[in-house]
Design a protein around this nucleic acid. Structure first.
Lengths: 138, 138
DNA sequence: TCATTCGCAGACTTATCGTATCTATAATAT
DNA sequence: ATATTATAGATACGATAAGTCTGCGAATGA
């Protein structure tokens, strides 16, 4: 049981965008090059991030992806759920007459993790990183 | 991203064993019947629980599975890790010079969930359940 | 207006893993 | 001995992850 590699890509891509926070949109090509992954696959993740409303896309020449304005407060949970979906970690497959006690326990524990991931922002990682060498991020 | 159904089976099987806590071992046949799943598949989960040291198996006629003595304090985490393994929820696939900051955040959040799942015991669910109608558990 | 650059969507392939079954073997009670 | 039971291994199937390829549409710049 593991988060997909796609989530890994998405988180690192977001970190790059937040740390860089450029005026000009960043193309998939550049982003994929920085991360060392394929463009076509990475673009799928980025499209999901767009649909989740985390970033903004610009078509055409000199296009690419930009952060949505005033949104340095994108949380880890936002990115993870954008990629993984927001389904529960555990779902009881049995037919109970009332709610499944086991599921309640696991769901409660998961809720705590989600709370932490929600309070932690991507931008929090940028704070104590010097502005110049962005390569350290990838 | 979800816990496997096998974990679901294992948790419910453990709950049955803890709630019942019989002198005689419980066979896979009975257990599978109670849960409404296949014997052969369920036996794989139980074997994992044995290897994890959570329960005890008795071969031969009238054999089956029993709780290990004085172990009502089996936690949810014990069962989950016995089935899912103890690998981390998230592992960064990039080559950083130092540790991955992203991974640290996610690992920290996961750690909180694990802490909760460790403190919560299967037996906790049995406390406020009447002894007779065990079928309510499945 | 035209070509280039870009994101977007869908079809498609491949690999991996979860789910499940079957069979044979070893252990134990009667 | 024989029946009963757990255990291990091989195998099969399906779903999901991982990744590629292609064509379409939107925007830019010449």
């Amino acid at each position: 049981m593991k988060y997909s590699q796609a989530t890994d890509y998405a988180l690192h891509a977001m970190l790059y965008l937040v740390a860089e926070a450029p005026d000009k949109p960043v193309s998939v090509q550049l982003l994929a090059e920085k991360l060392g992954v394929s463009q076509t696959y990475l673009s799928k993740m980025l499209t999901k991030l767009v649909k989740a409303g985390l970033i903004h896309s610009v078509s055409g020449a000199n296009g690419g992806y930009k952060l949505k304005r005033n949104q340095d407060d994108i949380s880890f949970l936002d990115v993870i759920q954008a990629i993984e979906g927001n389904t529960s970690l555990f779902e009881c497959s049995f037919h109970h007459d009332s709610a499944c006690l086991i599921q309640q326990v696991v769901a409660d524990a998961e809720q705590q993790m989600m709370h932490t991931l929600k309070s932690k922002k991507i931008a929090d990682l940028v704070a104590h990183i010097p502005k110049q060498p962005h390569d350290r991020l990838t």
